[in-house]
């Protein structure tokens, strides 16, 4: 479903990813872990081409989504980003109403049917486990929500355009423990419908939410296996050291 083939990635002269080969299965949650600067976020952003926005970067190799190299010339980046949604580290709702935040993706993709937009907004907010908290104030500013609610709003916003893949870049790192556990429950529920790749600094979080875990270090994919195996009995010593907190 998602695959990286011989991926090397450079910021200017600095090589951030070294020969990554990785396959990610459908409807699984895959956690990317590793110390700061190991390239895990860079790797995540390859799959909706957000790295394109950074100047002076270069990619070698292939990133495949749905049997297609998404870096082919023929690929429409805007179309790709509808298929591969993203949730960012810091909640980033637009300065619009709660309703308009979720409706945004539909509207910019040409859906102006009031009924279908309203229905899709409701569905998305329900999927993101936010509906009950906001259904009476849909037309209030999104900034009136708490940080955790804002992050779930951003998830709803991403779900509204019906992506197949959801990329999450440390989605709970700016949140309090209660909001974090809500997001984790949500990830658990969403994996029946979506393929989720999540970058996290929090090892317990990776253990709790993911089916598979990939450990990155210094731009290399050190180990990639089932989460259970990774945390109980990793193959590599570096993985063992990182997981047990000996560095990082």
């Amino acid at each position: 479903m998602i695959e990286a083939k011989n991926v090397n990635f450079y910021y200017g002269d600095f090589q951030a990813l070294r020969n990554i080969n990785m396959e990610i299965g459908q409807q699984t949650v895959t956690a990317l872990i590793g110390p700061s600067g190991c390239g895990k976020s860079t790797f995540l952003r390859l799959f909706n081409r957000m790295n394109d926005l950074i100047e002076n970067t270069r990619l070698e190799g292939e990133c495949v989504v749905n049997d297609q190299n998404i870096y082919n010339r023929s690929v429409d980046v805007d179309e790709l980003r509808k298929e591969v949604g993203m949730v960012f580290q810091k909640p980033n709702p637009f300065p619009k109403s709660i309703f308009e935040n979720v409706a945004y993706g539909l509207r910019v993709n040409g859906n102006n049917n009031k009924k279908s937009v309203t229905q899709r907004v409701e569905e998305s907010l329900i999927s993101a486990a936010l509906w009950d908290e906001v259904k009476d104030k849909l037309h209030k500013s999104a900034f009136e929500l708490s940080g955790g609610q804002q992050q779930r709003l951003c998830i709803a916003r991403a779900l509204a355009v019906s992506p197949m893949v959801l990329l999450m870049d440390e989605p709970a790192s700016a949140l309090d423990p209660v909001s974090t556990s809500k997001i984790e429950e949500l990830i658990h529920r969403l994996k029946t419908d979506y393929t989720i790749v999540i970058v996290t600094h929090n090892m317990q979080q990776a253990a709790r939410v993911s089916d598979k875990t990939a450990f990155f270090m210094l731009g290399e994919l050190v180990e990639y296996s089932d989460t259970k195996k990774m945390f109980l009995n990793p193959d590599k010593e570096a993985t063992q050291n990182y997981i047990t907190g000996r560095f990082g």
Binding site: M50, D78, L80, F88, P93, V108, N109, A158, V161
Partner: peptide, 8 residues
């Protein structure tokens, strides 16, 4: 980035 990531 939020808007671009939604395919806008």
């Amino acid at each position: 980035t939020g808007s671009l990531a939604l395919g806008a």
